[in-house]
């Protein structure tokens, strides 16, 4: 039975088959037309010809150099040979410092979390990652775009972050400029970051035609007041930000969302 159905000479087109096909094709055409109308309103995000990959890195601070006065101390003179002597008497010591008794004033606060070795090691690893990040030269890989563990939101996907898709080079350049200005003003308490590495805040900022910050708004609070406040202050303290590239200015007129992730894992 099945083999006869699949033979071409046995295939027959019934009228309602044709009708159903026409109906579905018509629906597809209709959706294509509507869909086209729907996305025409938005600015194109990427020009494929311009695509390049970049890595956002913080530039290391310049190190202060003291005058280089090489005055390497000469090696100590060799001591005169002395016959093996009897063991010397104990040598002078000052008294060890008395240990300080520690108490808490009234209203004792909750004791800080005790951290085990593992936490310290993890912190060291995070730190070494940060160090590597800071020291990395301006490379050719968009770290956020190539992060296999990236779990960024649809909004970030929209901007080309963390999607695996390369970021628009103008947007990448703009992000780097914003980062250079805002990051030095951002001083969240390390303890908060350490205890809550998943904190994530979005601050919306509106710029005037000169780049002066007109308005800041907490678009997405993290739930930690101190952390959120540090993000808002970082933007406000910046005072002025560069204007976005022309092709993004229409989008930016509705507001620029600045993301503040507590860790690179976000």
């Amino acid at each position: 039975m099945a083999s006869s159905v699949l033979r071409p000479d046995t295939l027959t087109l019934k009228p309602w088959d044709l009708l159903l096909s026409l109906l579905l094709h018509g629906t597809v055409v209709l959706f294509l037309l509507l869909g086209r109308g729907c996305i025409e309103d938005d600015q194109p995000l990427f020009d494929p010809d311009e695509i390049m990959q970049v890595q956002m890195v913080a530039l290391p601070k310049a190190r202060g150099r003291n005058p280089d006065r090489a005055t390497r101390a000469p090696s100590p003179p060799p001591p005169a040979p002395v016959p093996e002597a009897a063991m010397p008497s104990p040598e002078p010591f000052a008294e060890p410092h008395p240990s300080n008794s520690e108490t808490r004033p009234e209203e004792p606060p909750p004791k800080a979390d005790s951290r085990d070795r593992r936490a310290d090691v993890l912190r060291q690893l995070r730190r070494s990652e940060l160090i590597k990040d800071i020291q990395a030269p301006l490379g050719d890989v968009d770290r956020s775009a190539t992060d296999p563990n990236s779990t960024l939101s649809p909004e970030e996907a929209f901007a080309g972050l963390g999607t695996g898709a390369p970021m628009d080079p103008d947007l990448a350049r703009y992000q780097s400029q914003i980062r250079r200005i805002v990051l030095p003003n951002w001083t969240p308490l390390p303890r908060i970051i350490q205890d809550n590495p998943d904190l994530f805040t979005i601050v919306e900022v509106t710029l005037d035609a000169d780049g002066k910050i007109e308005k800041t708004r907490m678009a997405r609070p993290s739930g930690n007041t101190s952390y959120d406040e540090s993000c808002i202050r970082a933007v406000q303290k910046s005072g002025r930000l560069p204007l976005p590239p022309p092709k993004f200015q229409n989008l930016a007129s509705r507001g620029i969302w600045i993301h503040f992730p507590a860790s690179d894992a976000r």
Partner: peptide
């Protein structure tokens, strides 16, 4: 979203 999105990345050693 309808906004231009930029990220400052994780806090450095300020």
């Amino acid at each position: 979203s309808g906004r231009l999105i930029v990220s400052v990345g994780a806090p450095g050693r300020q």
